Amino acid sequence: MSGASVSSNGLTMTVTPRKDDSITILDHVDFHAEPGRITGIVGPSGSGKSTLLYCLSGLERATSGSISLLGHDITHMRASALTRFRRRHLGFVFQSYNLITSMTVEENLALPFTLRGRRLPKQKADEMLRYFGLANEKKRSVTMLSGGEQQRVALARVLLSDADIIFADEPTGALDQESGAKVMQVFKSLAMDAGRTVVIVTHSGEVAGQCDQIVEVRDGHVLNADTESGARI
């Protein structure tokens, strides 16, 4: 599919927990996500949704198949080169937040910029913290925050970046309805106004309903890739 900034062909992930006992988590998956759109990955627990997200983003190595990000084949890219590529082009939102507990909120926001040899845009960061109701928390250690507040910090961090592609695993799972709505509004702005590619794994029918495209995964297979949301969750 022309124009796809995230794509895979024949993507397969097999694990062998015991000798002569292999399990196929992803089975020859073809996937495409285009810039300027939010693509939602849905399906029941254990279907392979998160594994697909991690393989597409290069955080896990697939057993076979190919993956292209922004026209770059990352399938056999060296680990060091892949790390540099992720830092420059990709943003991540994890269920586990992945915040540095020894740092303050502001220091966590600055970390991706520091890794790139850049400075945190403080005005933009302050605006993002106000948007998420965290304006008074930026000097506090993230360990002093609630789970929902930590998730908002993690979201603010990735949304502040100039990542071309954002991968998000259940980004609204720990948030109240109002905060979740704000997150989706920012994602829409990044996709529609800034032309970014957003790929979201979700169990939420409300989140899926706001995606431009739905990819349904069942038992490691992609069942459909609809241009209209509403696939079964």
Rank of each mutant, 00 (worst) to 15 (best):
G3E: 15
A4E: 14
S5P: 03
L11C: 04
L11F: 08
R18I: 08
R18W: 05
T24M: 07
L26A: 13
L26G: 07
L26I: 14
V29E: 01
V29A: 04
F31A: 02
H32Q: 13
E34N: 14
P35N: 13
R37F: 09
I41W: 00
P44I: 00
S45K: 13
S47H: 00
G48F: 02
G48D: 02
G48Y: 00
K49Y: 00
C55M: 10
S64V: 09
G65R: 03
S68L: 03
G71I: 03
H72G: 00
D73S: 14
H76D: 12
H76L: 11
S80C: 06
S80H: 09
F85C: 15
R86F: 04
H89F: 14
L90V: 12
G91V: 03
G91P: 04
V93D: 00
Q95L: 06
Q95T: 08
S96C: 11
S96I: 10
Y97N: 03
Y97Q: 01
L99Y: 05
S102N: 14
M103Q: 13
M103I: 11
M103G: 08
V105Q: 08
E106C: 11
E107V: 12
N108Y: 06
L109P: 00
A110E: 12
F113D: 02
T114F: 10
G117F: 04
G117M: 09
G117L: 08
G117A: 12
R119T: 14
P121Y: 08
E127G: 14
M128S: 05
F132I: 10
F132T: 06
N136V: 11
T143N: 03
L145G: 02
S146F: 07
S146V: 13
G147M: 08
G147W: 04
G148N: 10
R152A: 05
A154K: 14
L155K: 03
A156G: 04
L159Y: 02
L160S: 07
D162K: 12
A163C: 08
E170Q: 08
A174H: 00
D176E: 06
A181L: 03
M184D: 06
V186H: 03
F187H: 00
K188T: 02
S189A: 07
S189M: 05
A191V: 09
A191I: 05
A194H: 08
G195N: 07
R196P: 04
V198M: 05
V198G: 04
V199N: 07
V201K: 02
H203K: 10
G205M: 11
G205V: 08
A208M: 10
A208F: 00
C211G: 11
C211R: 01
Q213D: 11
V215K: 02
E216C: 10
V217A: 03
D219P: 00
H221R: 15
L223M: 09
L223I: 09
N224E: 03
A225E: 06
D226A: 09
A231H: 02
A231R: 04
